[in-house]
């Protein structure tokens, strides 16, 4: 099994309750092809670097899952057909997934969620991300801290830039 990561951008005008419907539909696809959903991470509204379908903002969602080509195909087909989705991209993260490491990682992620320690998690971020993926244990809390840390600052920066253009 391979590990993939799909980022997709939703129409920013879409009401919140519609998000849930869409996510449920996508999550439902994963087990059908013997895949595992690792996490679904909502980055929230961000400024787009360029216009997509006349939109300057978009609601980013990251989907991290394991599966094979058929699953990716199915997910992409659904995203393509759905006109609430502005754009999507799937990236291969790992060619062979170690299920045990993955389970440990998901466990760790679950444990980490209720604990609000953004500072400590953020400090470890740099070392763990990137190449150290297969080790698993450290990766989950790291990527969790990542969007919460990134989103506000990035959007600020982008807004500033926008103001001066």
């Amino acid at each position: 099994m391979r590990r993939y990561e799909t980022v997709f951008i939703l129409n920013p005008e879409l009401p919140e309750d519609q998000h849930k419907l869409l996510f449920d539909k996508l999550n439902g696809l994963v087990p059908e092809d013997q895949g595992t959903l690792v996490k679904l991470d909502e980055w929230g509204q961000k400024r787009l670097a360029y216009e997509i379908k006349k939109h300057t903002r978009g609601y980013y969602v990251l989907m991290d899952f394991c599966g094979d080509g058929a699953l990716v195909h199915e997910i992409e087909r659904n995203l393509r057909l759905d006109d609430r989705v502005l754009k999507y991209m799937t990236v291969l993260k790992d060619n062979a997934v170690d299920m045990e490491a993955l389970e440990a990682e998901m466990e760790a992620a679950k444990e980490q969620t209720p604990r609000p320690e953004p500072v400590e998690e953020a400090s470890g971020e740099g070392e763990e991300k990137g190449d150290s993926e297969p080790t698993g244990t450290g990766e989950a809390p790291v990527s969790e801290a990542d969007p919460s840390e990134n989103t506000p600052e990035t959007s600020n920066q982008e807004e500033q830039e926008n103001g001066t253009t």
Binding site: L62, E127, G130, D146
Partner: peptide, 10 residues
Amino acid sequence: SLSIDYKDPR
């Protein structure tokens, strides 16, 4: 400790 990630445009 610096990592290269497409999700980090900063």
